[in-house]
C-alpha cells in the first residue's frame, strides 16, 4: 500500500503525499526514510505537504514540519482534511489548504497501441561468447547495418516488436534485426562514440528539465512521479510504478511499470541495470513483457545487463545501454 508518494507538479514545488499513512508514527518513519534517502536533493526545495485525513495534535504537526525544515526543504503549502490537524497547524501559524492538492494530469494512453513484446531474454542475457556462436548473421553484415544507421550507435541486442497480437515472423522487417553480441570488440572501438556521446549530451533535451534523485528501492504499491527526469538508485519492484515527463534511469532492476515521457515526449528513454519490466510505456506507446513466464524466470537468474528502452520508428525497442550516443 502506498504510504508516501512524491509528486512533482508543473510549478516549482514538490508535493509530498503522506495521506497514505494512517498514524503519526508511520508518517514520521516514512518521511524520515524518504528524506534521508534523497540526501542533498531537498536543499532549498519548495515542498508541499499533503497530510490527507491524518490526525495530528500540535506537537506532532510541529515535528513533521521540523523534519521537513531539518533537511533544508522549504514547506510551501500544507493540505489537510482532518479538523484537529488543521487546528493544530493553525496554532503553529501554518497556512492550511483544506482538501486534496491538485494532481498532475496524465496523458491518455492509446489502448490500441498495446502490443506484444517479443524479446528473447534467454539470448540477451546469456554468456556473450555463447551468443556469438549462435548468431546466424555474419559480423560483416552487422557492421554494415551499423554504418548505415549512424544515428543509432547502439548495438541492438534485443528487439521488441509490436505487431498487434501476433508474434513477429522470421524475415519480417522488424524482427530481422541484428543480434550481435561481441562485447569485447565493441568496447575497443567505442572510445570515439563515448566522446561523441559526451559532446552531444550537452545539447540534448535533458538540460532544461530538473531531475529527481531517489536513493531507495520502490516496493509494490509505491509510486513516484516527476515532471522532469527521474533517477532511482535502487530497484523498482513488481507492483511499483515510476512515471516521469523525461527519462527514467534506474540503477538497479526494473520489475514494475515505468512510464517515461508522460506528457507525450517520444524522445524519452527508460534505462536500467536490469530491465525486466511488466510494462514499459513511452509517451503513448506501451510494450509489455512476453506472456510466457519462462523467460522472465531465467532472466532473473542471469547477470546484469544494462539496457535502454526507447522509441524507434514508433516501436519500443530495448537496446544495450553501454554505448549509447
Amino acid at each position: 500500500m502506498s504510504k508516501i508518494t512524491i509528486v512533482s507538479r508543473g510549478d516549482q514545488s514538490l508535493l509530498i503525499d503522506i495521506a497514505g499513512c494512517s498514524t503519526f508514527k508511520e508518517a514520521i518513519e516514512q518521511l524520515s526514510s524518504t528524506y534521508l534517502s534523497a540526501g542533498q536533493f531537498w536543499q532549498e526545495q519548495l515542498v508541499d505537504l499533503n497530510l490527507g485525513s491524518l490526525i495530528l495534535n500540535r506537537p506532532q504537526a510541529a515535528q513533521i514540519l521540523a523534519l521537513t525544515n531539518g533537511i533544508g526543504a522549504k514547506p510551501n503549502q500544507v493540505f489537510a482534511k482532518n479538523a484537529e490537524t488543521i487546528n493544530a497547524l493553525k496554532d503553529l501559524d501554518i497556512e492550511v489548504t483544506k482538501g486534496n492538492p491538485p494532481t498532475v494530469s496524465s496523458t491518455t494512453i492509446k489502448q490500441e497501441e498495446a502490443t506484444v513484446v517479443s524479446n528473447n531474454k534467454d539470448i540477451a542475457n546469456s554468456d556473450p561468447v555463447k551468443e556469438t556462436s549462435s548468431v546466424d548473421q555474419p559480423a560483416s553484415e552487422v557492421k554494415q547495418k551499423e554504418s548505415e544507421d549512424k544515428k543509432v550507435k547502439t548495438k541492438i541486442e534485443q528487439v521488441i516488436v509490436f505487431d498487434g497480437e501476433e508474434q513477429p515472423k522470421a524475415g519480417d522487417e522488424q524482427s530481422a534485426q541484428v543480434k550481435e553480441a561481441d562485447a569485447a570488440t565493441e568496447l575497443e572501438t567505442s572510445q570515439d562514440s563515448i566522446l561523441m556521446a559526451a559532446a552531444t549530451a550537452n545539447t540534448t533535451k535533458t538540460n532544461k528539465r530538473t531531475a529527481l534523485y531517489l536513493k531507495q528501492t520502490l516496493r509494490a504499491g509505491q509510486a513516484v512521479s516527476h515532471n522532469g527526469d527521474l533517477i532511482i538508485v535502487g530497484d523498482v519492484n513488481a507492483g511499483a510504478e515510476v512515471v516521469a515527463e523525461g527519462d527514467i534511469t534506474i540503477w538497479g532492476s526494473l520489475r514494475g511499470i515505468a512510464h517515461a515521457g508522460i506528457d507525450g515526449n517520444t524522445k524519452a528513454e527508460i534505462r536500467a541495470l536490469r530491465l525486466q519490466p511488466i510494462q514499459i510505456r513511452i509517451a503513448s506507446y506501451i510494450a509489455r513483457s512476453p506472456d510466457s513466464s519462462n523467460s522472465s524466470l531465467s532472466a532473473s537468474a542471469s547477470a546484469y545487463t544494462a539496457e535502454t528502452a526507447k522509441l524507434v520508428n514508433g516501436k519500443i525497442r530495448i537496446v544495450h545501454s553501454t554505448l549509447e550516443a
Partner: peptide, 9 residues
C-alpha cells in the same frame, strides 16, 4: 489470470 502485463488502467 496471467494478465499482469496487459493492465493499463
Amino acid at each position: 489470470m496471467g494478465l499482469e502485463n496487459r493492465v493499463v488502467y
